[in-house]
Design a protein around this nucleic acid. Sequence first.
DNA 1: AATATCAATGTAAGCGCTTACATTGATTTA
DNA 2: TAAATCAATGTAAGCGCTTACATTGATATT
Lengths: 342, 342
Amino acid sequence: MSDFAKPTLDDVARAAGVSTATVSRCLNAPDRVIAPTRERVMKAVEALGYTPDFGGRALASRRTNTVGAIIPTMDNAIFARGLQSFQEALSKFGKTLLVASSGYSPAREREQMEVMAGRGVDGMLLIGSARPDSSVDFLRRRGIPFLGAWNLGDAEGYFVGFDNHAAAAELTQMVLDKGHRRLAMIAGISQMNDRAADRMEGVRATAERAGIARAQLPVIEAAYTFDDGARAFGELMALSPRPTAVMCGNDVLAVGAMQKARELGLGVPEDVSITGFDDIDLASVVAPKLTTIRVPHRRMGEAAAEMLIKLINKQPVERQIEIPTAIVERDTLGPPPVDHSA
Amino acid sequence: MSDFAKPTLDDVARAAGVSTATVSRCLNAPDRVIAPTRERVMKAVEALGYTPDFGGRALASRRTNTVGAIIPTMDNAIFARGLQSFQEALSKFGKTLLVASSGYSPAREREQMEVMAGRGVDGMLLIGSARPDSSVDFLRRRGIPFLGAWNLGDAEGYFVGFDNHAAAAELTQMVLDKGHRRLAMIAGISQMNDRAADRMEGVRATAERAGIARAQLPVIEAAYTFDDGARAFGELMALSPRPTAVMCGNDVLAVGAMQKARELGLGVPEDVSITGFDDIDLASVVAPKLTTIRVPHRRMGEAAAEMLIKLINKQPVERQIEIPTAIVERDTLGPPPVDHSA
DNA sequence: AATATCAATGTAAGCGCTTACATTGATTTA
DNA sequence: TAAATCAATGTAAGCGCTTACATTGATATT
């Protein structure tokens, strides 16, 4: 490692025989400098191997060209995928991405918000809308533009996402149309997770409208892991009467449920139907293939990036951008088994 | 958005009736300030909602507490997972994570390196060791500590990873021990990807040692997608004589191959054995379950974080940390079918 | 030819923070 | 009790950059 001191603007200015202002202009607004001067400066930049110091620049310009993203976890493929396209889109605009994870905890999300605010991010991507007002206030007070992704919010704020409630409702209707009456749900943990809560409510409300009382629709909340999905499915199958269709809050839970079904010797969908949500790779790879809801995570990431950039540049934007979802009918949803108990 | 100016150190100092130096010390070296003063200051910090400005801090201290990671893509679960634990570990040390992706292109990796260097990252995480010398020189000249992960490097540099070659070799030996002689491989694209190249070479060398000439071991390189895996598998199955075991460069390829096998009406492992690499979630969820190599990606992420922190703090570190891998025997590797052509 | 105009560049004041050094007052030492 | 010591805090000089404003000299306008 060399110990040449890192060259500064001053060094370049001296080498090129101009003032620091001119060098700065060459770098930030080249057209405000006449060509011969600019060339001389750029040559000096090259020669010295100069690169601007981020700290100095951030301090002086009050801009960082950095945006932050706080997601629950990258372990969940849907966020990893969305984040990947978010980052790609961002980098086209010359922004870099600061990443942090909250582990689904609002308190940790808040901490990370402060860290990022301290780093002067130009804008921030958050997931969903379930967070204490104080967190939102913090961002507003700081004047940091932000948006929620992966769902559509309520009254205030900017969102790019999809209608978790409606999508879940639509799938529920399909399950009902197949003839199922004894539904059950393995939901994500709904506290401070609006996506999970909306999906749950979409299922319940639709079932209720079809005359199934809430009390008759068992719901177990589970963390998004195979094991928890399997465990919950086991509990559900021990119920009597046994549900004929188990709707899951995401594909991971659904696959966990499928594994448990196999263990229990239950055929899917002959003995019990199972549905997922997200349509991650897994869904089309398990056997039988999972009936689920496709969510275009990549598209969401891109749309989020574009929206956030506009917000940062104070360009006009729509308050909510809805990304369409679609039911993907595969092989885990069928009619209920013939009921011999009747 | 309110236009309260963001509070500065000065504001806090004034509110607490101390100098800026004391406030700074409270934040950076609390034990150098007596308790009552510290409490008074912290109260002021709370009250004003103060958070330090990154630019100012970076400029004055010549440190950013930021580390960069450039990975091929977060779409690959193994990197997403590793990155997640890397970030968690980092955040315990008060560092934040800048993320960029190279899409497996050395040129893009280099670009991102420059961006990150410009941002004054304290250190950098890279994947593997296959990159032009000029990229490495760049980092060295800048005095930015960095390490390669997911494999072990050659002579120089720091690494935390595993021996892709040895792991692949071991699995190959197991395949041979089952009695297979007509092996084939679907490898990742090996150019500028040392993990893929090492795995490939591990298979080839072991087969060769067992008397299988290289020319008799067909290898198809494929991008890490289901479709490409399936396509390659199709080509391999069209060969004559048909391979009895197909070893894949990662689990995604293997699962793609399995799907194609089903399509072709070939039983796994009765008609053809298939192996993977990585042991991602997928592997234990497909039917039949995939025989593969477990790589503890989380552990690698953590170890990488610890090593990088030490490098940044100029503490002594081992040059290479090897993370052990293990063969996970499941259901896709069996003995070869009885050969009626003999 | 005198004046107004304007593009190109320079001057210099910070941006918010850290930290070397200076100051202060209490405690220890002789 | 005076001197020495030391912990706690303050003072103030930058860190490298951007940018409002000032200056200059050339060109356009009358």
